[in-house]
Nucleic acid binder design. Structure first.
Lengths: 143, 143
DNA sequence: CGGTTCCCGATCGATGTAGTTGGGAATACC
DNA sequence: GGTATTCCCAACTACATCGATCGGGAACCG
């Protein structure tokens, strides 16, 4: 499972917010959490990270909530993952550098590169497009 | 870091064994472990998994050790990873199926597919080729 | 028979993950 | 101005996983 719960919850919340971006686009933690069926106090932490990471801004008090800082097209999944997952904090790296390990680390690098490429190629805007396409397709079954 | 220690150690051991495959190719746990600087009793567990997974066979008693079951060209990294990592045991999957989550699961699927493609495209034979190329390149610096 | 090697399973400490909880600070509204 | 609402900050917990260690048993060779 490539995404942790943290990342998944954060991205889901961002997709919701991105869907509302045209029309002001402010939503509250509790609102998002109940729509998605996830613990609100936990989601709050993700939204805090995203705010600190410059992806969201927050409004306090009644009628407050969260809002995207930028249009959905300018927010890449790679950035979100990076903010929520934090630095991968590489392990020792230096010891155990037999040629066999080096070859594997090169392969591991290729894997990370491929992953990053996909995540950088995906914006929130694309995710809402896919969501809407999916809803459209599912509506077909009811005709 | 895409590979766990388990996977990394197992693969390193297999690369060593693959390098010896022509000439009988039997090596002992302690031998591999000390060459690679990893705990032998721990590596033993990985080799046991690989034997149970049909990738290695073992020979007991003095002059025993481990041996590849098949030529290195027929052992893919994907298979090794699968054996060492085990089934990813998917979480609930069914609850929390809002369209937003579905879109993310699709993206997660794409990531796994990309990863798998790279791992399936890499055999032990290719890894020993890369290791030897790397040794060759490093030898250049000493001229 | 005796040493060598693999075999099997339990255990352990550290770390991370998912989630809960207890308050505090800003803001809107009456 | 008071009060309810919302975000803000931080500590804490339960649990699983990971990397590793350990004790002892079974096969095999000479």
């Amino acid at each position: 499972m490539p995404f942790s719960a943290k990342t998944e919850y954060g991205l889901v919340a961002l997709i919701e917010l991105a869907g509302q971006f045209q029309s002001g686009g402010v939503m509250q933690v509790g609102e998002i959490a109940s729509r998605q069926g996830i613990p609100d106090r936990y989601l709050e932490q993700m939204l805090t990270s995203l705010r600190r990471g410059g992806i969201l801004r927050s409004i306090r008090g009644p009628k407050g909530g969260y809002q995207l800082m930028r249009p959905p097209a300018e927010i890449l999944v790679s950035e979100v993952v990076q903010v929520l997952e934090g630095e991968p904090q590489l392990r020792d790296g230096g010891t155990r550098e037999t040629p066999e390990f080096q070859v594997l680390h090169a392969l591991a690098g290729d894997l990370q590169t491929a992953r990053l490429a996909l995540l950088e190629a995906t914006s929130l805007e694309q995710l809402i497009e896919r969501r809407d396409a999916l809803l459209q397709a599912q509506a077909m079954y009811f005709i």
